[in-house]
Amino acid sequence: MQPITQAAIRKSFINASRSQTAAVNFPADFDEIDWENLDQFGWQDHKMPQRSYLVLPVENKIITILLRAPELVAASKRALCALCEDLVSEDDVYMFVAPKAGASGKNGNSVGTLIHSTFSCSDNVRAEVKPTVIHPDPELVKAERIRGLQERTLQFVQKVRS
């Protein structure tokens, strides 16, 4: 991803009102983000823990989605993140819900998906891969993981937009 400003993120929401975008609280380390190694950027709002945000580039534009985090998180079985499909990460995976864009969202319609609570998907798909007989080239495996993350995240965005 290219570096993004807070103002650009506020303007890029597809499923939030002006008052919701004005109330966004960015992470304290926002100015230190390594944008180059991110396919998407997500965070939990530290002042409103039920709100999270997911930012990604789509067709040379930035899109931001408002997400609602689960209210209560009980100890349960491990789940697979629908975006990165990482099997190794120890991060919790939660069901995040996004109001749909436009009139549908204003009518209360939403979509949900399982995402790592720390939004670590970009790191997960870039994790070291050991060569195997089936996959002798680790860089090809990483490239396929990155492509898959981008594709599945875009599919989620399309569900929010529809």
Rank of each mutant, 00 (worst) to 15 (best):
Q40T: 11
H46G: 07
M95W: 05
S17A: 13
H46P: 12
F96K: 00
A127C: 05
I9W: 01
W43R: 01
E85L: 10
S19T: 13
Q50W: 10
A8S: 12
I63F: 00
R147D: 10
S52I: 01
A22V: 12
V111Q: 01
V111R: 00
P138F: 11
K100P: 04
M95H: 06
P138R: 12
L54E: 01
H116A: 10
P99L: 06
Q6N: 05
H116N: 14
V93W: 03
I134E: 15
A75N: 09
D86W: 06
Y94T: 05
A69R: 14
R126N: 15
K142Q: 14
T113L: 02
V88G: 06
R78S: 14
N60W: 04
R18H: 07
A23D: 15
D86A: 10
P136Q: 02
F30D: 00
S19N: 07
L56F: 03
N37G: 15
V73Q: 02
I115T: 11
S122Y: 04
F96I: 05
I134H: 14
C84V: 11
D31L: 03
E139Y: 11
A74M: 09
V125N: 04
W35K: 04
L87N: 12
W35M: 03
V88C: 08
G42D: 01
N37H: 15
R10C: 06
I33N: 00
G148D: 12
V141L: 07
D137I: 15
A7K: 14
E144V: 07
E32P: 04
N107R: 12
A23C: 09
I62H: 00
A82R: 07
M95Q: 07
C81Q: 08
E36D: 15
F30E: 00
V73M: 02
S117A: 15
S104I: 02
F26P: 05
V133Q: 13
F119I: 09
